[in-house]
Structures are given as structure tokens and as C-alpha cells.
Computed example of a mutant assay.
Amino acid sequence: MRLDVSTSSRGPMFDGRALAAANRYVDDLEQQLAEEGLTILRREMRAVFKTPTGYYESRCVIVDGNKIWDSRVVYGPWLAGVGSRNFPVTRFKGYDHWIKTRHQLNTRKRALGERLLRRYTGRM
């Protein structure tokens, strides 16, 4: 008995289109997560800051397409409660706006990723 098997290596998996689509998906997901995180962070800051000036909020931006940072505002660590002048030096323990942002973003990231993935699966 003789068995002949032939295969064809054509299509997105073999010519690099699937890999390119997967890389674009990861880049888009990182960008959307950063934008969602910045939206959450700004909402949290508006909710917890007692006398907001708007300066700190305006300095919180997305860099490199996937990171949120406060542009090294000198009192940023103090606001977050991790500065050298927080409790016990002063009574102020800081706000938890970064912690709440991280928690909320972690609960939303799966749904956001699945929604975005639907756009890319047809290309793979």
C-alpha cells in the first residue's frame, strides 16, 4: 500500500500576513488600553482632588503609544501618596487615583481585547 500526501503552503499563515496582523493587533490594543487608562485616570483625579488646578491633569499624557505618565510633575508622588513628604511627615496620605485606575483598567482589558480581536481575525 502506498500513500501520497501533498501540501500547499499558501495563505496568510505562510506569507507573513497573519504575523503582521497579529503585530498590528498588539500595537492597537496597547494604544487603546493606554487611552482608556488615561480617561479613567482623569475621571478619578476629578473625583478625588479637593482643589484641582488642572495643571497636573494636563501633564498626564500617553508616551510611546502605550504608557501613561505624569511628565515628572514635582508634586506627582506627593499626590499619589508615595512621596517623601507624605505621612508620617505630614497628615496627607495621598490620593489613590493611580491604584483605582490600574484596578479599573485590569477589569476592562479582556473585553476591550476581545472586541478589538474580532477586527483582526479575518485577516489572519
Results as ranks from 00 to 15, higher is better:
1 M>G: 09
2 R>F: 01
5 V>E: 04
6 S>N: 10
6 S>P: 00
7 T>S: 10
7 T>V: 15
9 S>V: 02
10 R>W: 00
11 G>R: 04
12 P>R: 04
13 M>R: 15
15 D>Y: 03
16 G>M: 03
16 G>C: 06
17 R>W: 01
18 A>V: 08
22 A>T: 09
23 N>M: 07
23 N>S: 08
23 N>Y: 02
24 R>M: 08
26 V>Y: 04
27 D>C: 00
34 A>T: 08
36 E>K: 15
37 G>S: 08
38 L>Y: 07
39 T>D: 13
39 T>E: 14
40 I>W: 09
41 L>Q: 09
42 R>F: 03
43 R>M: 08
43 R>Q: 14
43 R>P: 03
43 R>A: 14
44 E>D: 11
44 E>W: 04
47 A>V: 00
47 A>P: 00
48 V>M: 12
48 V>E: 14
49 F>L: 15
49 F>I: 15
51 T>E: 08
53 T>H: 01
54 G>C: 04
59 R>M: 12
59 R>S: 03
65 G>T: 01
67 K>M: 06
68 I>E: 07
70 D>T: 12
72 R>Y: 02
73 V>N: 03
73 V>H: 05
73 V>F: 03
73 V>C: 01
73 V>I: 06
74 V>Q: 01
78 W>D: 06
80 A>R: 15
80 A>V: 13
82 V>E: 10
85 R>Q: 10
86 N>P: 11
87 F>T: 12
88 P>D: 10
88 P>N: 11
93 K>Y: 01
95 Y>N: 04
98 W>N: 13
99 I>C: 02
102 R>P: 01
103 H>I: 15
105 L>P: 14
105 L>T: 14
106 N>K: 00
106 N>G: 15
107 T>E: 13
108 R>K: 15
109 K>A: 11
112 L>K: 11
112 L>A: 07
113 G>R: 06
113 G>A: 06
114 E>K: 11
115 R>S: 13
118 R>W: 00
120 Y>C: 08
121 T>L: 12
122 G>Q: 05
122 G>K: 08
